[in-house]
Amino acid sequence: MAENRMEIPPMETPLLLMQKVSFSYNKNPLLCQIDLHVRPGRIIGIAGSNGSGKSTLLKLAGGLIAPSEGSIRLSPPDGLAPVSYCLTSEQIPGWMNARKLMAYYSHFFADFDRERAQELLDSLALPQKRSLYWLSSGQITLIALSLGLSRRAALYLSDEPLASIEPKLRRDIRRFLLRCMPEGSSLVMVTHHLNELQYMLDELAILHRHTIRQIETETIRRKYGISVEDYFLKETKND
């Protein structure tokens, strides 16, 4: 089995530190002894083949599920929530709308900034009272990201924000993320769109055969002279 590898310079106190984390679904191992760290102010992409555990890793980082082994430590700065998990379009019932979703966030999260959320939603110029049934997945993603990013958190998590979305809207989402990410906060996102995001990502974490390899995207370009997607394909070529 491949070992975890990291090509990351020595770090300051990480925001998120996962050490030897393992997780199984119904006794089938999915993640084995994963080490992952996230520094403040970084954007990290998690890539891997289907079923490699990317979404599970994100849920572990978000505290939605517990690992069967290992430790997960979040060290947010004072005054910030440790993590904000941004919902995806499949995770929100269709009968909800932007307003009801905002009410859900206000109801459960003390760190939710309602004014900022309203400002972000207004900037999107999307119908806020219309049920999500009537919106496209890209529009729902933008709404979900607005609300997720409106929590005062140190680490934001997003699962495939560009999935099943047409190119123009993908560009809008990329720009939206860059514009709205609070300074000093980090973003970890699962993605398959490596070439589109390569100049946005500071680091790439590849999930392969139950382990993880974490590398700076600048190192990929400088040391290997290839694109982030080509590096991913090279690292996972035996699949």
Binding site: L64, L87, I92, F108
Partner: peptide, 11 residues
Amino acid sequence: RPRRTMEQLTG
């Protein structure tokens, strides 16, 4: 189902 995430998020 994926929508369970909303319940899990409530903590």
